Amino acid sequence: MKIEDIKHPELKNHINMIYMHGENQNQKAIEKTEDEIRQYIRDKYFIISTEDSKPVKIPYANDGEYLVPVFTDEAEYINGMQYFSLNVMDENKDYIIEKLDYFKKLKEDPNFLGYIVNIARVSYIINTSLL
């Protein structure tokens, strides 16, 4: 599979719906959309940023907690790498195209908070309950 083949407009739509439901304080609709996201990501492939064959970890807060960036298409990956570059975080970064359960051991790590989708836009965190 090639990077240009990865496209996730449906996931982006789900993310937008989550924000809209949040603004409307519609918890039931948020839960329904989260279920749709859970179903959607189960069999889909994403661009996952790696370093030395391990997922890139973005520190979150000060307790050792972290997020792993994933990208929904080639343009978002390019934007993400520019973001890394601006924050001096881009050395030795690469990518793989895999399902989000590829790094299964991440779920066992209590410091793993989930995947951040399209980090340059900080659009959404896929938390571990959705994996």
Rank of each mutant, 00 (worst) to 15 (best):
N79Y: 09
Y83W: 14
E65H: 11
I78F: 10
Y66K: 02
T72E: 05
G80Q: 11
V56C: 10
V68T: 13
P69K: 05
N62E: 12
K57V: 07
E76N: 14
Y66R: 06
G80N: 07
K57R: 15
E76K: 13
F71Y: 15
Q82F: 13
V70R: 00
P59R: 08
A61Q: 15
F71K: 01
P69I: 09
Y77T: 03
T72D: 01
A75D: 14
Y66E: 05
K57T: 09
V56N: 02
K57C: 11
P59Q: 04
E65C: 09
I58H: 06
I78P: 00
Y83F: 15
G64W: 08
N79A: 11
Y83Q: 02
E76V: 01
D73S: 06
I78H: 11
E76F: 12
I78L: 12
G80L: 07
N62H: 10
Q82S: 13
D73V: 06
N79S: 13
V56K: 14
T72W: 05
Y77L: 14
L67S: 04
A75M: 11
L67F: 07
Q82A: 09
N79K: 14
Y77N: 06
A61T: 10
N62M: 08
D63C: 01
A61V: 07
P69M: 08
V56F: 14
E65Q: 13
V56Y: 13
Y77C: 06
E74K: 15
P69W: 05
F84M: 12
F71I: 01
Y60K: 09
D63V: 00
D73W: 02
Y60F: 13
Y77G: 03
M81N: 15
F84N: 04
V70Q: 01
F71M: 14
V56L: 15
D73N: 15
F84S: 04
D63G: 12
I78R: 11
G64V: 08
M81R: 13
V70G: 02
Y83S: 03
T72A: 02
E65L: 03
Q82D: 14
K57H: 05
M81I: 12
P55F: 08
Y83M: 03
V70P: 02
Y60P: 00
Y83R: 02
E74C: 04
A61R: 12
V68G: 07
A75I: 10
Y83L: 01
E74S: 08
E74N: 08
V68D: 08
G80K: 09
L67C: 05
E74Y: 10
G80E: 05
E65S: 15
V68S: 13
Y60C: 04
G80A: 06
P69Q: 10
D73A: 09
P55D: 05
P59F: 06
Y83N: 12
Y60M: 14
